[in-house]
C-alpha cells in the first residue's frame, strides 16, 4: 500500500476493497490493550460469562481501529479519515469472521482536497456488527478540474 487513489477516478457507487478479519481471542485482546481499554469483558472470559456474554467480545475502540484500516487500505496512505460515525449491532466473539464492505455515496472537493463519502457495514457470524458512514479526504491539485 504505497499509492493512493486519485480522487478524480473515484465514482459514486464504487465498492471499497472488502476486508475480512478472522477474529480470535488474540485479535480481541490485542485490540483492547492497544486501545488501552482494560474492561475485563474484552480479555477475561470468566468475567464476560458472569456478565451474561458467552465469551469476551470486541471493544468499540477496536471497531474504530478496524474501520480505519478498512478505509485507508482501500484509499491509500494519503487518505485521511475526517469523519466516522458507527453504530454497533450484534457483538463479535472469538471464532467469528468479520467482513467489512462499503460503497462510495458522494464526492465533493475544495481547492486542494477531495472528499469521499462512504457507507459501510461489518457482518459477523451473528449478523450486522457495525454499520456506519465515513468521510475521507484525498489531496487534489488545485489546478485540476472538478472531475475528469
Amino acid at each position: 500500500m504505497t499509492t493512493s487513489l486519485d480522487w478524480h477516478t473515484i465514482t459514486v457507487g464504487d465498492a471499497l476493497t472488502p476486508l475480512v478479519i478472522d477474529v480470535t481471542a488474540t485479535v480481541i485482546v490485542a485490540g483492547a490493550i492497544a486501545t488501552r481499554d482494560y474492561m475485563p469483558v474484552h480479555h477475561d472470559r470468566d468475567y464476560a460469562n458472569a456478565q451474561g456474554a458467552p465469551d469476551i467480545f470486541m471493544n468499540i475502540l477496536s471497531d474504530t481501529g478496524c474501520c480505519s484500516r478498512f478505509l485507508t487500505d482501500w484509499a491509500g496512505p494519503d487518505a485521511m479519515v475526517t469523519r466516522l460515525a458507527i453504530r454497533l449491532g450484534v457483538p463479535v466473539f472469538p471464532g467469528h469472521t468479520l467482513a467489512y464492505t462499503g460503497t462510495v455515496t458522494d464526492l465533493s472537493r475544495t481547492a486542494d482536497e477531495g472528499f469521499v463519502e462512504i457507507e459501510f457495514t461489518a457482518i459477523d457470524d451473528l449478523g450486522e456488527h457495525v454499520s456506519g458512514t465515513a468521510t475521507i479526504s484525498l489531496p487534489v491539485d488545485p489546478a485540476d478540474g472538478d472531475r475528469s
Binding site: 486501545t35 477496536s62 481501529g65 496512505p77
Partner: peptide, 20 residues
C-alpha cells in the same frame, strides 16, 4: 500491529515524509 494496519504513514519515516 493490533489491527494489522500496514499504512506506512504511521510507522515508516521515509514513506510518511513523502506523503501529503
Amino acid at each position: 500491529a493490533a489491527f494489522e494496519d500496514a499504512n506506512p504513514v504511521y510507522t515508516d519515516v521515509e514513506a510518511a515524509t513523502a506523503s501529503r
